[in-house]
Design a binder for these strands. Structure first.
Length: 552
DNA sequence: GCCGTTTTCGGCCCGACTGTTTTCAGTCG
């Protein structure tokens, strides 16, 4: 049974309920533990059986006991006690925009309002009129919040979708002559698998003009808030976008601050305090003297640290690694030598090949990998030979090397396939379930990787938990797992990549079906602390065997 | 409730914006 998501949800509920009780620091402690658990690359039960629950960041004695209680009994008595004190709808009230724990507690305590629907009724009948602190404007906002709650849910979006939206806005702002620096910050810059809202950061010679242009972009559906340095809007697909305009001398500090993550920043600030420094979005100060802020490197240097890549700023050991001079040398897009998972449309193989050759040449790829499956050609070996001859005729300079892979169902792959001299590598197609016991891929021959893991998205397990059996299997069998920018919710996410890398496994980085998002896939690999050593397609394949006369 | 290259106790990021306010509380990120 998967338990990480279930435990995290319960800890978050405890945090919400403690919020209502106006507890000061406990809610954040429970939330931090919940975030930590969602970011694990392994099931909680594995941590418990090793006696390592305490080693999860943010989990101390009290939360550890509650996790153990849940894993043993399926209940957390503390949560049940808290739940009994408040109707469930009151927590829902806190979920409305602009309505926090203080207001929810007052509405319940003073008016008996215990759900968004009841709040709507109370507003309708004038029940809030005259209540201290509730003026006409605030009542109107609450009314809007109650009605808006039915319209859209603040769902997180896949990285690639959010990236496309953010890039469009960034390009529109970059055209303005008063805009100097402009960066996408937030979880998008960290390349998180899913994105809640989009953060943009700019410097400008005319900040009000920049804010004005931003608020008036054609895709803006609603301006939520607009001040002299900060503006929040909702753009067309229903995504919230924040723009902040800062002074040039603070750009690095602001970029660091608004890139997060929250846990990374809290730890960074604690370190600053211990060093007698103060750090905020304007800069790093020692007393009255500014000692950093122009760029991010300066900010980290002021704290005695090397610059830390955004993708790993999650407080998952990166600050300790940086302090010890042991940051990993993360894989970079420029180190990818070629891609390995291009399918050729039946009947148009040679045309597609020409396209791949030109694309590969433009990107400076050392090789391009086309994949044939038994279902896509009656005689894959013959087709491979024909494709190699066609490749040799292409007038593309410089022409990358053509590699041809054979895709097989993982169940059907036999040792004999590995010796098929027509192919440079094997792609194993996995089912949605875990690898069956005793499943052994060919052990010899060309490189092998499991093409895009399509994990069964059902249930409450995190992607990393669902991938756990595959991670173990892949590292034991020396088979790489593919990483694509489109797969993180039902395939290998960055937590899974990190778990794989930690046991010495390998990945193949692929751009996904439309071939346009290799950079995002590399970002995912970087989030998983992968270096070029862990990436199969950051290396060149062995040269063609001499007995196979291959025109390349 | 968690945490510690000066701490096992005393901290916990901190500033912008909004609405309702004569000086601030609540929310958000």
């Amino acid at each position: 049974m998967s338990s990480n998501t279930e435990v995290a949800e319960r800890l978050q509920r405890i945090a919400d309920l403690l919020d209502l009780k106006a507890e000061k620091f406990k809610p954040e402690a429970y939330r931090r533990a919940a975030r930590s658990i969602l970011g694990l690359g392994e099931d909680l039960t594995a941590f418990r059986s090793r006696g390592q629950l305490d080693e999860i960041p943010g989990v101390g004695e009290a939360i550890r006991k509650k996790i153990e209680e849940y894993l043993t009994t399926g209940r957390i008595e503390y949560l049940e006690r808290l739940t009994a004190e408040v109707p469930p709808g009151v927590v829902e009230l806190m979920g409305l925009p602009g309505l926090g724990p203080k207001t929810a507690a007052r509405l319940f305590g003073e008016l008996g309002v215990s759900s968004p629907a009841e709040l709507g009724d109370a507003i309708g009948t004038g029940g809030l009129n005259g209540l201290a602190g509730f003026g006409p404007r605030k009542i109107a906002l609450l009314k809007e919040a109650v009605e808006g709650a039915r319209a859209v849910s603040p769902a997180r979006r896949p990285l690639r979708e959010a990236w496309t939206i953010a890039e469009r806005i960034r390009r529109a702002l970059a055209e303005r002559t008063e805009v100097r620096e402009l960066e996408i910050a937030g979880s998008l810059r960290r390349r998180r698998e899913t994105i809640g809202d989009i953060d943009l950061l700019a410097t400008s010679t005319d900040p009000p003009a920049t804010i004005g242009v931003f608020a008036a972009l054609p895709e803006v559906r609603k301006v939520v808030m607009k001040g002299p340095t900060k503006c929040t809007v909702v753009v067309e697909p229903g995504v919230q976008v924040d723009l902040r305009v800062v002074a040039p001398g603070s750009f690095g500090a602001a970029l660091q601050y608004f890139t997060g993550s929250k846990d990374h920043n809290i730890k960074l600030r604690t370190r600053a305090r211990d060093l007698g420094l103060k750090i905020n979005e304007y800069g790093v100060d020692r007393g009255e003297v500014r000692v950093g802020g122009r760029d991010e490197t300066e900010v980290y240097a002021a704290l005695g640290l090397p610059w830390i890549p955004p993708e790993i700023r999650e407080d998952r050991g990166e600050l300790e690694a940086a302090a010890a001079g042991e940051l990993p040398d993360l894989i970079e897009a420029g180190q990818i030598r070629g891609t390995l998972h291009h399918h050729l449309p039946p009947g148009a193989e040679e045309a597609e090949l020409a396209l791949l050759a030109r694309e590969g040449a433009r990107q400076g790829a050392a090789y391009v990998g086309a994949v044939l499956g038994p279902g896509e050609a009656a005689h894959p070996g013959d087709l491979a030979g024909a494709l190699r001859r066609a490749w040799a005729q292409l007038a593309v300079v410089p022409r990358p090397r053509l590699l041809i892979g054979l895709e097989l169902s993982i169940e059907g792959a036999s040792p004999g396939d590995a010796s098929r001299s027509d192919f440079d590598y094997l792609v194993l197609r996995a089912g949605a379930s875990a690898p069956r016991v005793g499943l052994r891929p060919p052990q010899e021959g060309p490189p092998r990787f499991v093409g895009h893991l399509a994990l069964d998205p059902g249930g409450t397990a995190t992607p990393a938990e669902r991938a756990t059996p595959w991670i173990r299997w892949a590292s034991e069998n020396r088979v790489a797992l593919e990483v694509t920018p489109d797969g993180p919710t039902d395939g290998l996410d960055s937590n899974g990549i990190r778990a794989l890398v930690e046991v010495g496994g390998e990945i193949v980085v692929s751009p996904g079906p439309d071939r346009g998002a290799l950079g995002l896939a590399v970002g995912l690999a970087r989030r998983g602390w992968a270096t070029s050593r862990h990436v199969l397609n950051a290396r060149d394949p062995p040269p063609p065997a001499p007995e196979r006369s291959r025109p390349t």
